[in-house]
Simulated scan of single mutants.
Amino acid sequence: MGTTGDRETLHIFYDGSCRLCLASVKRLKELRSSAELLFIPLQSLDGDAARLYPAVAALPKETLAAKMHVADGEGRLYAGADGIVRILRTVPGFRLLAPLYRLPGMKRAMDALYRYIANRRYEWFGEADESCESGACALPVRNEPKEGG
């Protein structure tokens, strides 16, 4: 994890079986971000993912499935509403809204709203069985440092 050139890289781990999550990823890909956003469906986290994303792979599957997780270049993890705010901090126009999250009571309210929607996402939006077809769940290609250089 880290930066790509001068751009920060954010790794976004989401439920690839969730129609709401898939629609959110599609919308996020359309936004102009100052960061490189890499989207990784939870369904792709297997043996290689443990090596590439150890902090995320160490979390219990139930914890990962309950909320979207965002990992920044420093290895910090942001989950749920914290993750959304972390992404929005990189998007012009939305960047100005991020400080509102620090207002007294706002974090608690946003976390509660996130959990309420996340707990009902399949009931309200449905499950996408085709989420991993055509390699959609493949891990993104990363540039690994060369040995000895």
Rank of each mutant, 00 (worst) to 15 (best):
R121P: 11
E30T: 14
G126Q: 00
D48M: 13
K146P: 12
G73V: 06
L139H: 05
P99E: 05
R108S: 14
Y114A: 09
G126T: 01
G16D: 04
R120F: 03
L28A: 03
R120E: 11
G83T: 08
G75L: 14
A23K: 05
P92A: 01
W124A: 00
V91M: 10
G47D: 09
S34Q: 13
A112K: 10
E127K: 15
R89H: 05
D6Y: 10
K61E: 15
E133C: 06
R76A: 10
E127C: 08
A112G: 07
C18L: 06
S33R: 06
H11Y: 10
L37T: 02
A136K: 15
K26V: 11
A35H: 09
L64F: 06
A136R: 15
L10P: 05
A55Y: 13
S17L: 10
L139A: 09
L113F: 03
L38H: 04
C21H: 09
E144G: 03
D82R: 00
G149M: 10
P140S: 01
Y53W: 02
D15N: 04
A58R: 07
R108A: 15
I40C: 00
E127P: 06
A50W: 06
H69A: 03
I87A: 03
I84T: 13
K107V: 07
R86K: 00
A112D: 02
S44M: 12
L88S: 07
K61Y: 11
Y122N: 07
Y53D: 05
R76K: 14
L22Y: 13
G75I: 15
E36D: 12
V85K: 02
L139D: 08
L22E: 07
Y116M: 14
K107P: 00
L100P: 02
A49V: 07
L100S: 01
R95C: 01
M1K: 02
D129P: 09
E144W: 13
E127S: 13
V141H: 11
I12N: 04
L22C: 10
Y78F: 15
T3I: 10
L139S: 01
A112P: 04
A50P: 06
Y114I: 12
A58Q: 06
S24K: 12
R102A: 15
G2N: 04
L97Y: 03
P145D: 07
F94R: 11
N143H: 14
I40Y: 00
G16I: 00
